[in-house]
Amino acid sequence: MKIALFATCIVDAMYPRVAQATVQILERLGHKVVFPAGQACCGQMHLNSGYFREALPVVENHVRAFEAGFDSGDYDVAVAPSGSCVASVKHQHAMVARWALERGEKRADPTLEARAEAVGERTYELSQLLTDVLGVTDAAAQLGSYLPGTITYHPSCHGMRLLRLGDRPLSLLRTVEALDVVALPEADQCCGFGGTFSIKNADVSSAMLADKVANICGTGAGACAGGDVSCLMHIGGGLSREGRTTTAGTPVRTVHLAEVLASTHENPLRFDGELALAGGAR
């Protein structure tokens, strides 16, 4: 299968290792990965903050960047290592196209709604693609996933409630060789990120974060995995600020599901110190 990678802006600029890990996983399964060069961002931050007008060019760009490859057969599906970005592509893009039209915006494009829907329908979140489309049921056997250590998992809200990912990510984690997955108390509670909420209501966001950090550290896990880099940056930023460490004295980290699945015997992800996957994709 030919798969377009939507890296998402934050992974592209801040966490390239997450996109690299995604590429590794998909290539290990024998699929061809394409990176549509025009891509930038899904526009979720603008949309959720009420900046519909400013979101419009971002959404237009995303649709333009991905639709051509679908039409030409360069790829069959698109995947992003982010539940919230996929939720935005699937649920919000057509909406903002409609908004622009009905509001008589200068940039309004009568074709955008249908085009956005077409792209949204073929866009998957990583655990969704792996489980539902690519048939991964055993990460160790099918991906060679190996990671010695203890990990917990935070299900980000948009993946959980807008995409209904259910136990897909956890099922994948549980089949990683040598990995001990421990349950996170109050897992379904929001971490407090919420995009610009983290800035506009910084006090409430910080209070939510403090509880999430306490719950993570209470598990004794060396890292907290997740499927949304933005939430992980927020949680990781809190762990770092509080200087949280494991009983062994190493910092408690956040790590993306893709990084865990990409970890192998030959090239294991390390929880302590540098988290980057040496070597990159092959």
């Binding site: 890296a7 992974v11 592209d12 600029a13 801040m14 966490y15 390239p16 290792r17 996109a19 690299q20 990176f35 060069a37 983290s198 800035i199 506009k200 910084a202 006090d203 966001s205 910080s206 974060l209 403090a210 940056m233 927020h234 990781g236 930023g237 809190g238 770092s240 600020r241 990159g280 994709a281």
Partner: peptide, 25 residues
């Protein structure tokens, strides 16, 4: 950004973007 750093650190950015890495690859 002060709202963010009130309770969270920002990790050091990577030395190159995914986009750049991909192009080279």
């Amino acid at each position: 950004g002060a709202g963010w750093t009130q309770s969270r650190d920002v990790p050091a950015p990577p030395s190159e973007s995914f986009r750049n890495w991909w192009r080279k690859r």
